[in-house]
């Protein structure tokens, strides 16, 4: 139960910690107070409680594939929110844009937490009914949470060691990877629910780097590593990355376009 709970908790925490760290870096660069995180954490906690309590009913929706559909919708929503975030954060600093940035950050973290911790809640709830498993499970949960949170903290600080001009692009790249991961996972879920057709396997790296190994788990949580991804998943992954990159580029281009007439005005003065 110990190792199992380490892997389960670590994976969920790591995925959330990655997103939170990157968004925290943006929020600090923007000199924004970190209150948005509190809102997001409480919303995510409430959401996951709601989802885990109703899981039995949710999984019977849509002919027993409700779970996949709900999770996939949340993951697609995160992808879109991150793209919108990339667009609005690279744009101008108007109050409307600032509000949009906050909404994107809060909503994406809340959705991510809802999905991740619902599974943890269900797991812990199951374990609580068997007292003999309690100690190893909780020890494992502590170890997993410790590793996940530590990686998040170190990632947050190490991003600031980058040269100032690279931080934003690096964070955008990480966001793009998260978005790709989310959309690929969502696509897999819809395939599992038979809402999307099964497609051929893109590659098989199971011998080189099994998913069921510590580096495999870490890579899965960080960049969505799969030993045998399907073609559709690859397409969804690429689409997620391109969407975020494109929106970020569009946002920054719009800012440049807006800035130029301003300069022209000033010259006339």
């Amino acid at each position: 139960m110990f190792l199992n709970s380490v892997v389960l908790i670590l994976q969920e925490i790591l995925e959330a910690a990655l997103l939170v760290s990157v968004l925290m870096v943006f929020s600090r660069l923007d000199e924004r107070r970190p209150y948005w995180l509190l809102t997001a954490l409480s919303a995510g906690f409430a959401g996951s409680l709601l989802l885990s309590l109703n899981m039995a009913n949710v999984s019977e929706w849509f002919d027993y594939v409700g779970q996949e559909v709900v999770n996939a919708s949340m993951q697609y929503a995160i992808t879109l929110l991150l793209a919108l975030f990339a667009f609005s954060m690279s744009g101008d600093r108007s109050p409307g844009r600032q509000r949009l940035v906050t909404i994107c950050m809060v909503a994406s973290v809340a959705f991510s937490l809802t999905r991740e911790s619902a599974e943890v809640f269900i797991y812990i709830e199951g374990v609580l009914s068997q007292p003999s498993h309690l100690q190893p499970t909780l020890t494992g949960a502590g170890i997993g949470a410790g590793i996940g949170i530590s990686v998040g903290i170190l990632l947050y600080y190490s991003l600031f060691w980058l040269p100032r001009c690279w931080i934003t692009s690096c964070c955008l790249l990480l966001l793009a990877l998260i978005a790709g991961n989310m959309s690929s996972q969502a696509t897999l879920l819809l395939t599992q629910a038979d809402w999307l057709p099964p497609t051929a396997i893109l590659w098989d790296s199971g011998h080189w780097l099994p998913e069921n190994s510590i580096p495999g788990h870490l890579l899965y949580a960080l960049v969505g590593y799969e030993a045998t991804p399907s073609v559709l998943q690859g397409v969804a992954y690429a689409a997620g990355i391109i969407l975020v990159a494109l929106m970020g580029w569009l946002g920054s281009r719009q800012r440049h376009l807006k800035r130029q007439p301003l300069l022209a005005d000033r010259k006339e003065d």
Binding site: M55, A56, S59, E60, D63, Y64, V65, Q67, E68, E119, I122, Y123, E125, G126, L188, T191, Q192, A193, D194, P198, G206, P210, E211, N212, E226, A227, T228, P229, S230
Partner: peptide, 24 residues
């Protein structure tokens, strides 16, 4: 509850206690 998981099949799904579910 139990979670059906397979790395080789790329499948992962929670099955709540005393319920049934479908996995393709």
């Amino acid at each position: 509850p139990e979670e059906f998981e397979s790395y080789e099949l790329n499948r992962e799904k929670v099955i709540p206690g005393n319920r049934k579910t479908v996995i393709f």
